[in-house]
Nucleic acid binder design. Sequence first.
DNA 1: CCAAAAGTGTTACCCGTACACCCATGC
DNA 2: GCATGGGTGTACGGGTAACACTTTTGG
Lengths: 257, 257
Amino acid sequence: MEYKKQVQRLIQEFKTDFLPSVSVDLVIFGFHDGQLKVLLLRWKNTEDWCLPGGRIRHEESLDDAAYRSLHGRTGLTEIFLQQFHTFGDTRRYVHFSQEQTMLRLGLAEEDLQEFSNRDVSVGYYALVEFANVVPTPDFFTDECRWWDINQVPPLLFDHNDMITLALKTLRRQLTYQPIGYNLLPEKFTMPDLQQLYETILGQSLDRRNFQKRMLGYDILERLEERKTGGAHKAPYLYRFDKEKYEKALADEILFVG
Amino acid sequence: MEYKKQVQRLIQEFKTDFLPSVSVDLVIFGFHDGQLKVLLLRWKNTEDWCLPGGRIRHEESLDDAAYRSLHGRTGLTEIFLQQFHTFGDTRRYVHFSQEQTMLRLGLAEEDLQEFSNRDVSVGYYALVEFANVVPTPDFFTDECRWWDINQVPPLLFDHNDMITLALKTLRRQLTYQPIGYNLLPEKFTMPDLQQLYETILGQSLDRRNFQKRMLGYDILERLEERKTGGAHKAPYLYRFDKEKYEKALADEILFVG
DNA sequence: CCAAAAGTGTTACCCGTACACCCATGC
DNA sequence: GCATGGGTGTACGGGTAACACTTTTGG
């Protein structure tokens, strides 16, 4: 019954330390094996998956709350994180009224009210370096792992819609901002970068034109060869020029996909 | 003391009927006299201006709440209204702690707490037809009127930032969506439309190229001449083809500024 | 008749797209 | 040596940007 006690403590904490009615949900994108991935959580004692999220402390900014949640689930600190939409449809919670899910979490009947209140949720999406993430479940979840973007199961609430919109936003952002800094390892090859773009956009691009465009943006720094592993000709390694990259982000110019 | 009683009733209503911690703020754009305008409110017995806003009923969606507030301040029903950002900085409220402003509103000391609680606010921007708006103050405000976008005074909270970001979003939207349906009268001339674009973008455009581009989008319907008023040659009148306009909005293609 | 505004068409240049050849590496 | 993948350059075409002349109307 130690567990039940902890649940009670948490619920109490929700009431005292956090803003009511508002929450944060995260769509965390990673890139691995030529596939775009999303980080999902599985609720305790259920087969129900959902997005990571969190609540906002009274003295904490919205962005800080999102960062805190992101850090909790991934262990990462420096990451690209951006708000993309706030969800406030009342029907968001129809799915949630399946009380069985809640009961399996170990909530008492009287706690259900507290949990099934209708929230407005601010959606953030994050781009993270796949290899650096240590997926970590939170108190109410058993499992935290990557899912292929094309194989996401039906999620709780409106979380499937959130992923769809986050992806749409990401694609649009690709057309006026550079992307890759937080999705690729420090050093990467031009084909790596191209594969990332192709995966996000869902279409293939011309190898030569892609390279020309990327180099034209003047945000890449070419290093030496990479030798190991690869069969065939060894491609160059590149690194983002952080300063120029940030400048391009701020300028928001050109960058047509 | 009828007033004080009403204040009490409203505060009670806030606690029971509305979501705590969340509010909605509106940046309402109008276009008049070659200038972009914003609708602002002046608080009772003060010289403090701010954006119109509102709160969300328990059973009401976020969008509906925004529409309800918009309707209350303008009398309009069919309008372009879009969420652009959610503001959750804790420092939003530094300005607000000037209790004098609150006291002038007729709030008792013990109500201050209720009002100066920190909120997360969802920002919406609206495009409305200037001539159709009937600016209407609400209970806590004495005055509601249009301000030139370039002459907005220092506002309460972070409302100046909100306007800046709303304008930025509007400008970007201009590059991938048609605009004008809710900002111009039913019938308008090509120079009218161009002036609108130039005002929003803050730069002048080539007359001929502009016309070619607009006609190329295939969302305009040309009518007959306009005779009255104008010295010089009479320009054609146009009207938006609602159906095609909506389609272009949905498609989100091209439209480079 | 003149000034100011609007309607219309042509040209030029740039950029994005399409495309081909050479080089390096592993089997 | 051959298949696979990567590095590089060129030529064409479409669309945007620059630009000029004619027409109308009021004073």
